[in-house]
Design a protein around this nucleic acid. Structure first.
Lengths: 148, 148
DNA sequence: TTCTATGCAAAAATTTTGCAATCGT
DNA sequence: ACGATTGCAAAATTTTTGCATAGAA
């Protein structure tokens, strides 16, 4: 949905198309929320796909330098999380009670970004925005039903 | 400057006012940008203040649960970064070339947040927004003069 | 074939924890 | 004095790296 297919994005000659890279890419494109290395690892292992964690870290760095993913607003304890740089971009609404993450489709800062670009002379390539609070289930009680 | 003084914020009875907590708080209030545990540690050690890194991690967690600070959009390699929850809130513009961080004072999402709160029924307590790109010095050459 | 990417295991970096001693109230 | 907080050192967790092998072009 908006994210191009793996082979469309990676016609680069210096980018080999391995099954591990394809798997990691697929996990990202099927996720609405940012993912940690370990989460990706567990997802793939669950799908009977054999891959090593260090390979995932290397792919994460590789995708990051290629601009395919970015490190997102960190939500998963102390692990770093990443997400696809989709063409239509998304933001997130995170419940600090149960850590549920909901995707927000609108982007209220696009035009602001343009004016900021002019006033600061930065060449702004992206932004990240996330909202935090309590979801309907966690209000009142403020209970913490971690769904980790 | 928006951030209240240490003793103003912490009149709580279950919050002891130790010098370590005061130091860490001061480091935050003198910084315009998010900080990692190690950065705080080095800052304090440089000022001849004796503190241990594990104490800083504990204070970070303590301040977070008290709502004094929050984990910010991560910029410092793989370390977690935190920033004060000031009353007048700020966002950041980060250069991905040299890692310079500039504070942005406007907030273009306040009213959007209110409508999001209605449509999602979340009780939204905060948001984080950061912009990324190349500062004037790092444009063109795209050189990376890390000022770490 | 050639050169890059992977897997494994070991290392490095970051964060957390147990326990005795210290400090704030 | 009492109970919470600190420092130290050790443990746990997360991320990176070296090297031999496998795999893509």
């Amino acid at each position: 949905m908006g994210a191009q297919s793996f082979s469309e994005q990676f016609s680069d000659k210096d980018m080999r198309m391995t099954k591990q890279r394809k798997w990691v890419y697929e996990v990202f494109s099927e996720s609405e929320v940012p993912l940690s290395a370990e989460k990706i690892y567990r997802t793939l292992i669950n799908e009977e796909k054999s891959i090593s964690l260090s390979t995932i870290y290397r792919i994460l760095r590789f995708f990051t330098t290629k601009g395919v993913i970015t490190r997102g607003a960190t939500t998963d304890h102390h692990k770093a999380v990443y997400e696809l740089r989709r063409t239509e971009h998304k933001h997130h609404l995170v419940c600090v009670g149960c850590e549920k993450v909901v995707a927000v489709n609108n982007c209220p800062v696009q035009s602001y970004q343009e004016s900021l670009q002019k006033s600061t002379r930065f060449d702004i390539t992206e932004h990240r925005l996330a909202f935090f609070g309590y979801c309907p289930d966690c209000q009142g009680g403020r209970e913490s039903k971690k769904n980790k």
